[in-house]
Amino acid sequence: MDEEYDVIVLGTGLTECILSGIMSVNGKKVLHMDRNPYYGGESSSITPLEELYKRFQLLEGPPESMGRGRDWNVDLIPKFLMANGQLVKMLLYTEVTRYLDFKVVEGSFVYKGGKIYKVPSTETEALASNLMGMFEKRRFRKFLVFVANFDENDPKTFEGVDPQTTSMRDVYRKFDLGQDVIDFTGHALALYRTDDYLDQPCLETVNRIKLYSESLARYGKSPYLYPLYGLGELPQGFARLSAIYGGTYMLNKPVDDIIMENGKVVGVKSEGEVARCKQLICDPSYIPDRVRKAGQVIRIICILSHPIKNTNDANSCQIIIPQNQVNRKSDIYVCMISYAHNVAAQGKYIAIASTTVETTDPEKEVEPALELLEPIDQKFVAISDLYEPIDDGCESQVFCSCSYDATTHFETTCNDIKDIYKRMAGTAFDFENMKRKQNDVFGEAEQ
């Protein structure tokens, strides 16, 4: 370990593993360490099931009705991949897709007046949907046509809207959309967690709705994908990429100290040895004095023996409960997957309800979601602090990732990755940087 590296990475969460992969592909010498004996950090999948019970201090362990412990891979952080989103792009560019198998999530649902409705995925579904009345549908269709044709580089498509100054509230007004449709559009399509976006320039919202539609167009059922064997497969896929390009991995490796000289990182000390480096990437748990708390998320993992009611017996789905429907500031989400994804025993389902904490009784906040899941065989409640770095790391060369937020997709995580890359490399992130180099010394032969 007593060696000189360009970059040392602490923690094998998804953000850290993707950055480690990119740095290795770009010719950097990388050492990647984790104090845990497993990959994934906060974003790991726990197996066998006995391990999950232990982690949540349920000492009696799983009953026999849960089947074989080894058949379970339970995500600690519930997220899906947008089919046309940035993480899929990263997987394709790096060819990490060859280590993973994905399934399309069967449906996306939205909560309205105590019931759940399928988010329409085709024009026919939209016309048949009970989510809105006849005239509302016509106006909504006009709005969707506007979004589909919108091109930020072609003012002819703006229809009198200025993407940089017109607020989204004004765009909704222009198409005369009612409150329910606005809730549905902002939260189930643009996937905002709160209503803060309404008074911001509309460009980002329009682009988010386009991303949803384009992702949906790829597979038809929903815009989301999920990897077989759980999300823990993602960091491992990128760790393989890093290793192929010469990255060194050490799990179960305690970090005793991060060594600084004149305010700059110069190395990491572990078990009496020092590895030197020019730059350091880590998750917040490794540098508690360089991060601040930015809120909390509650996630309740529920094991069920039945599909969720009114989802047409889907073996995977997402449910969004827009905040307006339950008098909150932030949406509540449910991600459900099952034995069909090799993450649970035969006939079992895993539904994870999550939201940003707003009160001193977080469990009560998630109740509307839990009511949709009854009866629940077993619950595991996790309340996590969200951390963000206190500075950009440019001076110390210590670059810290943000905690995983309450969103049900990876777009915010990818933004964090691109942002850290830019601060480390001094140049904007470009997907081309992730391409495997042809015929290089570490390149794998085609399968």
Rank of each mutant, 00 (worst) to 15 (best):
E273L: 13
T359H: 14
K112H: 04
H341C: 13
K137Q: 06
S24P: 02
D180H: 05
D283C: 13
E60M: 14
Q296K: 00
P227M: 15
V171E: 14
E233N: 15
L100P: 05
F175L: 05
E363Q: 12
E374H: 13
V25S: 05
A428T: 11
D405V: 09
V255E: 04
P223S: 11
N84T: 08
G246W: 01
K418T: 14
E152H: 14
F109L: 04
R98W: 05
V334D: 06
N73H: 12
V147T: 00
A188D: 00
Q325L: 09
V398L: 06
A344P: 03
S108Y: 13
K142T: 08
L304Y: 07
M250R: 04
I383S: 02
Y245H: 09
E371Q: 07
S270Y: 00
K210F: 07
L52K: 03
M134A: 05
Y117F: 13
M90L: 05
G267M: 02
K118C: 02
K278C: 10
G232Y: 12
M66G: 02
V145F: 05
L386Q: 15
T408P: 07
F140Y: 00
L100R: 02
C317M: 10
N433G: 12
F380Y: 06
S167P: 14
T12D: 14
P288M: 15
Y53C: 09
K293W: 14
D283K: 15
K142D: 06
S108M: 11
K221D: 15
S222L: 02
G186N: 15
A344D: 14
Y117K: 14
T412P: 13
M82W: 12
D405R: 02
T165N: 00
R138N: 13
A382N: 13
L92V: 08
N439M: 15
I298L: 07
E233Y: 15
R98N: 15
Q296H: 07
S167E: 04
A294V: 12
G246V: 01
C402R: 12
Y421F: 02
V265K: 15
I337D: 10
T248I: 10
A314R: 03
L386T: 14
A425F: 15
V110S: 10
E95Y: 02
T15R: 09
C17F: 00
Q296N: 08
V7M: 06
D6N: 04
Q346K: 00
I244F: 01
M260V: 09
N252L: 10
I258T: 03
K156N: 06
Y212A: 11
Y197D: 01
S45P: 03
G295I: 10
M90T: 07
T194F: 15
E444A: 06
E3L: 14
E214K: 09
I308D: 13
N433K: 04
N207G: 15
R98F: 13
H187R: 09
K348N: 11
R208S: 00
P254Q: 14
S316A: 11
A351V: 09
G21Y: 12
E159G: 10
T355P: 00
C202W: 06
T413P: 02
V88I: 08
E159R: 02
Q438P: 10
E4A: 01
T205D: 15
L14T: 01
T97D: 09
P288Q: 01
V96A: 10
I287F: 03
N262H: 08
E432D: 04
T97I: 07
D196G: 09
L198Q: 09
T185A: 11
L280M: 00
G393R: 10
E273G: 11
L92P: 06
S285G: 11
V74I: 08
K210S: 12
P288A: 13
E214G: 09
G263R: 09
N312K: 03
K264W: 11
D419R: 09
S396I: 03
D101G: 11
S121P: 09
V9F: 10
L189W: 15
N252H: 11
T360K: 00
N130T: 00
V297A: 09
D195S: 15
T359Y: 04
E214M: 01
D385E: 00
N252K: 06
C282G: 04
R292F: 12
D385A: 09
E152D: 03
Y421T: 08
E64K: 08
S167G: 09
K418N: 10
G295W: 13
P362Q: 02
W72L: 02
V366L: 11
L373K: 14
L19P: 02
C414Y: 05
P63Y: 14
R173G: 03
S242T: 02
N36H: 13
A239D: 03
C282R: 02
D331K: 12
L91I: 01
S215D: 04
C317A: 13
G114A: 05
E42V: 09
L304H: 00
K28P: 08
V255M: 04
F102C: 12
M250A: 14
K118V: 01
A188T: 10
P63A: 01
M82T: 06
E432I: 13
V105D: 02
S108K: 07
E271A: 08
P155H: 00
D196R: 15
D405E: 02
R290H: 09
A353T: 10
F135E: 04
H187C: 15
F184S: 03
Y39I: 08
K269N: 08
C402H: 10
T205A: 11
G107D: 04
R290Y: 15
Y93C: 07
N315C: 04
I209A: 00
S401E: 04
E16G: 05
N130C: 04
M33R: 04
T408H: 09
K364T: 11
Q325N: 12
Y117A: 04
K137V: 07
K309Y: 07
I420M: 13
G113W: 11
K210L: 11
K329I: 09
K379T: 07
C282P: 15
H409C: 12
V441G: 01
M168N: 14
L372G: 03
Q447W: 15
G160E: 11
G160T: 02
K278M: 06
V268M: 04
E446Q: 13
P120H: 13
D440N: 12
E388G: 07
D170C: 14
A188V: 04
K422G: 15
I319T: 00
K89P: 01
I46S: 12
N252F: 15
T248K: 00
E4C: 13
T122V: 02
A148P: 03
G41R: 04
S316W: 00
R70H: 05
E365Q: 06
A294D: 00
Y249H: 11
I8K: 01
R240A: 03
T427K: 04
E159D: 08
I319N: 05
P120S: 06
D392A: 05
A243S: 04
H32I: 11
D6P: 00
E363D: 12
R240L: 01
V265G: 02
G426C: 07
N262E: 14
L100M: 03
G40M: 01
K293R: 11
D176Y: 05
I259R: 15
M66V: 08
P201F: 15
P375R: 00
A445V: 11
C414W: 03
I303N: 09
L251P: 02
T412Q: 00
Q179E: 05
D162G: 07
K28T: 10
A406Y: 14
P201L: 08
S285R: 04
L76W: 13
V398G: 08
L14R: 02
E374F: 10
S65V: 04
K329Y: 14
D257N: 05
S45H: 14
K142F: 01
P322L: 02
C317E: 02
N433S: 11
G230S: 01
G426N: 15
A382P: 00
L234P: 02
L92M: 00
I301L: 13
N312E: 13
D2N: 08
L370V: 07
N73F: 10
K269H: 06
F102L: 08
S403C: 02
E204A: 00
M434V: 10
I319M: 09
S403L: 07
G133A: 07
S330C: 01
Y421M: 03
V9I: 01
Y421H: 10
P155T: 00
P375I: 05
V326G: 08
G160C: 08
C394Y: 08
Y249F: 07
F429M: 01
K28V: 13
G426S: 11
G178F: 14
L228R: 04
S354R: 02
K309C: 12
I376N: 00
S20R: 00
C335Y: 06
